[in-house]
Design a binder for these strands. Structure first.
Lengths: 347, 347
DNA sequence: CTGCGCATGGAATGCGCTTTCCTACCACGG
DNA sequence: CCGTGGTAGGAAAGCGCATTCCATGCGCAG
C-alpha cells in the first residue's frame, strides 16, 4: 500500500517520467492532448498524490509560510492569524503556525525551525520586548533573509524586514483627543512593562496628547501585558478612584490593550467600582471577540485581520515575483478609528 | 550567498558527508569526539541550517502535523489550537494550520494539501455538517490514513480516525438538571441548523433532560451556528419573552454555544430585554475569552485547550511509536463542569 | 606472532520530483 | 530533393540528505 510515485503513474500511462511531471504540475510545457489524457487517467486510477516535499526539494520553493504569534488563543493574534491564513490560501501557500507563549527563546526557535523547513517567508506578529531578545530575533531573521527568505513583522521593526505597523502613536493621540473632547480631564495609564514597545508607544503618545490638550495624567501603572495583568492592576486603579479627594475631576483610565482593559474592569467590578459610573476606561485594538462586552469599551479600532492579510501579501508578493529583489524594507501603517462606547460615557 | 549544504560542512571539516550527517542530526551512531567537534565548528562557522525538506525526503518523515479548524479567529478554535500547538511543540512537531471558514470544500482541500506535504498526522477540529460533506471528508481522510498517515478528529467521528469528543450529551443533560434545580421550569433552545451535529446533540440531550426533570421546552429556534446567528435570533427570543402570558414561569434559554449566547444577549439588550431579569440564558463551552462577559454566562465548561493537546498526542504517539500499527479507532470523551453564573440567576 | 571481532569513517545508493539537454521527427522553403 | 527551423518526448543530472554497505584499523585472545 505504498504511495504511488510519479514513476508509477508514468509507467501506467506508458510515458516517461518527464512527461508525467509536465502534465501533473502546471509546467509551462504541456505534452500533446492524447498523452495528457492518459497521464491524468493513470494518476486518478492510482490515486496519485504528489509529494510536496520532493517537489520542494527539486524546485527549491516550498509553498510554505511561517507565522509566529505570541499566543494564538489571544483574540488579538487569532484575528491576525485569520487574515494571514486567508491571504496565504489566496496565494496558494500553506501556513506553518508557531505560538510561542510570549517566550523570546521559543520565538527564535520557531524562526529557526521555519528556516530549516525552507519556508518561503516568515511573518512574525507581536510586540517587541527587551532589546537583547530583539537583537537575537533580528539576527535569526537576518540569517534567514540572507539565505534567500523573506520576513515581515507585524508590530515593530525587527531587523531588515518589512513592517506592518499598528498606528500606536496616532491612535493613542486621537483617542486622547476624543476623550478630552468628551470632557475628561484627569487620566491614568495602565500599561505593560516599559520594555514592551507597543505598550510604551501607546502610553507615551497618549500622555503627550493629554498634556497638549490641557489634561493631566496622574499615574502610569505598569503590569503584565495581558488580561491577567489588567485584572491584577484593577486593585490599584480602585485605589486611585478611592483616593481622589472630593471635587477633583473624575478619572479616566487608558489601558493600552482591550484585553488589559477587560481584565481591569472585571477586577474593578469585584471591588464594587463600576465603569463608567465611578471611573472611565478605554482600551486599544477593538478586538472583535470583545465587542459584546458590557459596558461597551471605548477603544481604537485597528484592522487586525487586514494586518495579517497585508503582512502575508507583502511576504508573498516578493517571494513570487522577484525573489530577493526587494529593498528589504518598507513600512505600512494601517488605518484606525476611535470608537467611543459606554465605558467612557460621561453621565 | 547560497545556503551551505551538508557537503560544504563536511568539506570544511575535512570529513565525509556521512560523518557530518551523523554528527548534526542525532543519529544513533556518533563518530569520535574529535570529529564531532570539527563538524560542529564547521557547521557553526558556515551558518549551516539543515534542510528539513531534504531530510524529510530521505527519512520519509516530515515532522509536520496538519491542523484544520473551521475558523481560527473563533475563540473556541483558537483555544483548541493553542493546546494542539503546545503538544506539537512538546513532541517536536511543527503545525500546519488551515482555517477553512466553515467551508466543507476548503476543509477537504486542506486535508489533501496536508497529504501532499506528507504530514505525519492530521487533526481536524470542528463539528460535522451535512452527511454528504462528511462523507467526502471521510474519504479524503481515509485515503490519507491508508497511505500511512494518522488522523484524529476533535468533535464527531469522521471516517476511521481517533476521536476526541466534547461531552455534548452529558454536559447538556447536567446543565439542564442544574437549571431545573435552580428552579427554572420553562425553557427554549437556541441552536444551529439541524445538520450541525454538535448543535443537535446538545439540543436533544437538553430537551430530553428537561422533560425528564419535569420542565417544559416551548421552542427550539434554529439559526446560524455563530455569534451572528445568536444575534440574529435575539429578536425571536425577545418575542418569546414578550409573548408570555402573565403568570407563566419565566423563560430560560439554552444557547448551544457560548458565542451564540453572547450574540443573543447583545441583541436582547438592544431590544431592552435584560438577562437575567427578563430572561435567563445559558451557553456551552466556557470559552476563556468570554469569561469576563457581563452578566457572567452560565455554561458547561469543557477543557478546550486540553482537547487540542489530547488530539495531537493521540496523533503523534501512534506516528512515533508504531506507525500504522494502531487500531485506527478510539474515542476520548473529556470531562466537563457545569458553571452557574449570573445569566441564569433567579431573583 | 597470528587471527578474529568490533568499532570507525567513507563511498555510494536512493528518497520523489523538476528541468535541462538531446534526439527524433515533422512541415516547410529554397 | 535536401536543408532548416520548430516541436514533442525522453534520458539524465541534480535538489540535499539518510543510511546501507565496505574497507580499514585497532584490541585482544589464542
Amino acid at each position: 500500500m505504498a504511495r504511488p510515485r510519479l514513476q508509477d503513474v508514468a509507467d501506467q500511462a506508458g510515458v516517461s517520467l518527464a512527461t508525467a511531471s509536465r502534465v501533473l504540475n502546471g509546467s509551462s510545457r504541456q505534452p500533446g492532448p492524447g498523452l495528457v489524457e492518459k497521464v491524468r487517467a493513470a494518476a486518478a486510477d492510482l490515486g496519485y498524490v504528489v509529494n510536496a516535499q520532493a517537489q520542494a526539494l527539486a524546485r527549491s520553493r516550498t509553498g510554505l509560510l511561517g507565522l509566529v504569534v505570541q499566543d494564538i488563543s489571544d483574540p488579538y493574534f487569532s484575528t491576525i492569524a485569520a487574515g494571514a491564513q486567508d491571504a496565504a490560501r489566496a496565494s496558494g501557500h500553506l501556513v506553518l503556525l508557531a505560538s510561542t507563549g510570549r517566550d523570546p527563546v521559543a520565538e527564535r526557535e520557531a524562526v529557526a525551525a521555519f528556516a530549516a523547513h525552507r519556508v518561503d517567508a516568515v511573518v512574525v506578529a507581536g510586540t517587541r520586548w527587551a532589546p537583547e531578545d530583539d537583537d537575537a530575533l533580528a539576527a535569526e531573521l537576518d540569517r534567514f533573509v540572507v539565505a534567500g527568505g523573506r520576513s515581515v513583522v507585524v508590530g515593530q521593526p525587527v531587523g531588515e524586514g518589512y513592517v506592518v505597523r499598528p498606528p500606536n502613536a496616532a491612535g493613542a493621540t486621537a483617542l486622547a483627543e476624543a476623550l478630552l473632547a468628551q470632557g475628561h480631564r484627569r487620566f491614568a495609564v495602565l500599561g505593560g512593562p516599559a520594555t514592551v514597545v507597543t505598550s510604551r508607544e501607546r502610553a507615551e503618545a497618549f500622555v503627550g496628547a493629554v498634556r497638549a490638550g490641557g489634561g493631566v495624567v496622574t499615574d502610569v501603572l505598569e503590569t503584565e501585558f495581558s488580561r491577567d495583568g489588567g485584572y491584577a492592576a484593577g486593585g490599584a486603579v480602585a485605589d486611585l478612584v478611592a483616593g481622589a479627594s472630593d471635587g477633583t475631576d473624575p478619572l479616566c483610565v487608558f489601558a493600552v490593550t482591550d484585553v488589559m482593559a477587560i481584565g481591569a474592569i472585571a477586577r474593578l467590578r469585584e471591588l464594587g467600582v463600576e465603569v463608567p459610573r465611578d471611573v472611565s476606561l478605554a482600551g486599544f485594538d477593538d478586538v472583535p471577540t470583545l465587542r459584546d462586552h458590557v459596558p461597551g469599551l471605548t477603544t481604537v479600532r485597528i484592522p487586525l485581520e487586514e494586518m495579517g492579510r497585508l503582512a502575508v501579501r507583502a511576504a508573498v508578493v516578493e517571494t513570487v515575483t522577484a525573489p530577493g529583489a526587494s529593498p528589504h524594507g518598507g513600512v505600512t501603517e494601517v488605518e484606525f478609528d476611535v470608537v467611543l462606547r459606554a465605558s467612557t460615557a460621561r453621565s
